[in-house]
Amino acid sequence: MMFIKSTLSFAKLEYRALRFYPSNFFLSVIQSFVTAGMWFFVSMFLKDYAAASLSGYGGDFVSYMVIGVVFFQNSAAILTLPFGSINTAFWDKRLEVYNSSSYGIWAFISGRFLWTFFYQLVIQAAVLIVAVLMVGVKVSAELPVLPLIAFYLCFIFTCFGFGLIGASNFFTLEVKQGREPFTWLVDVLARIFSGIYYPLAILPIGIQFISRLIPHTYAMEGLRLVMLNGQGLENATVRNDLLVMLGFAVFSMLIGIWLLHRALQRAHKGNGVGMVV
């Protein structure tokens, strides 16, 4: 109970910071629209050429692209969140103070996660709604809501779990500035091999196996089948993808929590959470 209260308190802290600088919200919204808009125009330019490769998703490259970009932006924010949070608190000299309370650091990360989850949900939902209502992005009229929510949550928790693994490197690899290598690698592999911007079929067969190692591949495939084709759990691919995503979510969360816990213990035994080695 105390952990939940602390988590909510840290989430509220983020909300207050946003109220203090409301322009940040509008800039985030604009940035998300700009990114989605840029890829929208690229896909408009290539849609006729790409249509043949997208028969499995109804052949609409613009919708395929916008949905991919929206969910990827959301996942990227969650992926980099744990390391970014620890990094910021460390250099602001707040990390050790948070550590002086019972659940400090965990409540801090969870609170920031909770806040970012809803913040990104609102922004990306706004992008998607505008895309559907104003620029003709097509979403199935019979949208299976439960599989959509299940895919979304599994994807978010997978990225959060990977983010926690990355955050552990703050203490284990002593990466205290710049980009953390694990989440950087996940981000790069996802951008190239998971089919965010183009169908996997265009990749050379020899390297397509890499795609199957990345959770983003299953998330993108499943979310597009649900949103573009309206396919639910009766579809074998959707079922399999969801099962894989569930496995990724559980596995990455467990590994992430364990590794960050170990990293904090290592810091406790070593130089502490507030000192540069």
């Binding site: 308190s9 840290f10 207050r16 203090f20 000299k93 103070v97 309370s101």
Partner: peptide, 26 residues
């Protein structure tokens, strides 16, 4: 901590800072 700013959130007033930590300290 040695410097007063450590752990103090500048986006919260003096009272709001104490309210925040009252929750974190259960």
């Amino acid at each position: 901590a040695p410097t007063a700013d450590v752990g103090t959130d500048n986006n919260l007033t003096v009272r709001q800072n104490l309210e925040f930590w009252a929750v974190v300290y259960d």
